[in-house]
Write a protein that binds this DNA or RNA. Structure first.
Length: 477
RNA sequence: GCACGAGUGGCAGAGCAGCUAUGCAAUGGACUGCAGAUCCAUGGACCCGGGUGCAAAUCCCGGCUCGUGCUCCA
């Protein structure tokens, strides 16, 4: 079954046809590490993590590259404020990023190139652009000249040169730069006093924003590659600038076959921003939310839709996720993980999930099927028989909720969780037994007050009592 | 202002012209002393106004609302 991908440039879903059969080169714009990562970064990383997982499952050999823009104005500003080297700031935030990604069960990319390790390639690219007449040297830097290939303008955003020309008015002066046209953008910035710099043919300076991604994708994926992604806020100007740079430098187009962009996060219906005070870093979020629940919340909508991050969504995700992990763990510990392909219900669910994922990686549809199978499994566990079906459902969940969506703890952890439950259970069992016996006799004499009292007492110990037709059962919360 | 995208039941979201989406929640019932769990059943939607179709949530036109971008941003 073919994978279909929504390509931002053509604004349509297109069947994924790769340059080289069976291989996918995927570059996703990563972070600028000037502050700890926020949940928007988490959404971006998780979106692409799942895309990569699905492509690999579909049989593609994927090269997944995501970068760090580890030198830029904001990093320098933070470094100056703290009186430390800019790399110290970048490295600290990169560590924070990796820590968060590990917690969120994001599989590492194949490479994490950094601007500071790509300077020679960047310089080479800028030189080529100057040679080919697409860039010019000004007093304060080297600029790309938009007018040398105006036809490339607006490929992703649909804006035309004229619109921006008429719309942006007085900003030319504001930039205070040596630009010939306000839409030109910097390829190389001459160093100001106190700024980090590298030697270049044009003097000491550093790369402009945009060029690093052209250089790094070229270096790691070649002159043409399949998919370029990032947050939708990078559409303009960042990705359009990349199109100018890469295509003009390499002399062919398109360099990128498919552009894909993930949607933003809103908090309670409002844009997440520092000024609104509704800004969540990942580590802040993880103080209140289990990382896998956060992951669940963030894939609750397909990656292109905006996600509204609010308490209701989190609570929903938490209960769904708990249910999933609980029945998975229980099934796993009692019957193990087995083959699912013999059971029509599971085959159907897998088929619908695959159709959803093949249709532009629709995680929402996948999640519905995961819920359907969890429900099915719960029913089986309650009925207490048919262990082949149970282990089949566990295998199904392990494959799709686990491997594909990354929502499950490791088998070891799930079993350990069950075991710790068991050991707690063993520990309290005698006491619970006594209390339950007492409650039973209270119930027999219709002393409901005492019976409920005992139930409350047990609840205080984390023991949930459930009366059934064959007497009371209990479990650890 | 301009560009792009979106508006479906309480919520999240399918649907790409005719057939119950689904999950969660809700309601009713079964079981319960009550609660919980479970099982069965049920209701409920397509932003507004036009148009084209035998038939429109689905296509076309016009509005309205929201989001994002146009400046650093995943």
């Amino acid at each position: 079954m073919a994978v279909r991908v929504f390509d931002t440039r053509s604004r349509t879903k297109r069947k994924l046809e790769t340059i080289e059969d069976g291989k996918v080169g995927l570059y996703a714009c990563g972070i600028t590490p000037y502050s700890p990562s926020h949940i928007g970064h988490a959404r971006q990383a998780i979106s692409f993590d799942i895309i990569v997982r699905w492509l690999r499952k579909s049989g593609f050999d994927v090269s997944y590259i995501t970068n760090f823009t580890d030198v830029d104005d904001k990093i320098i500003a933070v470094a100056n404020e703290e009186g430390v080297d800019f790399l110290e700031v970048a490295n600290r935030n990169i560590s924070d990023y990796f820590e968060s990604m590990d917690a969120l069960n994001v599989i590492r990319a194949d490479a994490y190139p950094r601007v500071t390790e790509t300077i020679p390639e960047i310089i080479e690219m800028v030189e080529t652009l100057i040679e080919k007449g697409h860039a010019y040297l000004a007093e304060d830097g080297v600029y790309f000249e938009i007018d040398t290939s105006p036809e490339k303008y607006g490929q992703l955003t649909g804006q035309t040169l004229e619109m921006v020309r008429s719309g942006a008015g007085g900003r030319v002066d504001k930039t205070g730069s040596g630009k010939r046209d306000h839409r030109d953008f910097a390829l190389w910035k001459m160093a100001k006093p106190g700024e980090p710099f590298w030697e270049s043919p044009w003097g000491e300076g550093r790369p402009g924003w945009h060029i690093e991604c052209s250089a790094m994708s070229l270096k790691h994926l070649g002159e043409r590659f399949d998919i370029h992604g990032g947050g939708s806020d990078l559409l303009f100007p960042h990705h359009e600038a990349e199109i100018f740079q890469s295509e003009c430098c390499l002399g062919h187009d398109p360099v990128v076959q498919y552009w894909i962009h993930n949607g933003m996060i809103n908090i309670d219906g409002e844009k997440m921003s520092k000024s609104l005070g509704n800004f969540w870093t990942i580590s802040e979020a993880l103080e209140n939310v289990d990382p896998l629940v956060l992951r669940y919340t963030l894939i609750n909508a397909p990656y292109r839709q905006p996600v509204d991050f609010n308490q209701v969504m989190i609570d929903d995700s938490e209960s769904h996720h708990n249910r999933l992990v609980t029945c998975y763990g229980e099934g796993l510990s009692k019957h193990g993980s087995g083959e699912w392909s013999n059971f029509p219900d599971l085959v159907e669910a897998a088929k619908r999930l695959e159709e959803g994922m093949n249709d532009d990686f629709n995680t929402r549809i996948a999640l519905v099927e995961v819920q359907v199978v969890s429900k099915w499994l719960r029913g089986l566990l309650n009925s207490g028989s048919r262990s082949n079906e149970i282990s089949g459902a566990v295998g199904w969940i392990s494959e799709f909720a686990g491997d594909v969506l990354g929502l499950l703890p490791t088998k070891e952890k799930a079993l350990a969780r069950m075991e710790s439950h068991e050991s707690v259970k063993d520990e309290v069992a005698p006491k619970v037994g006594n209390l339950l016996a007492e409650r039973e006799s209270a119930r027999k004499s219709k002393d409901w007050g005492r019976a409920d009292e005992i139930r409350d007492e047990l609840a205080g110990m984390g023991v949930i009592v459930e009366d059934g037709p064959n007497g009371a059962t209990w479990r650890i919360e």
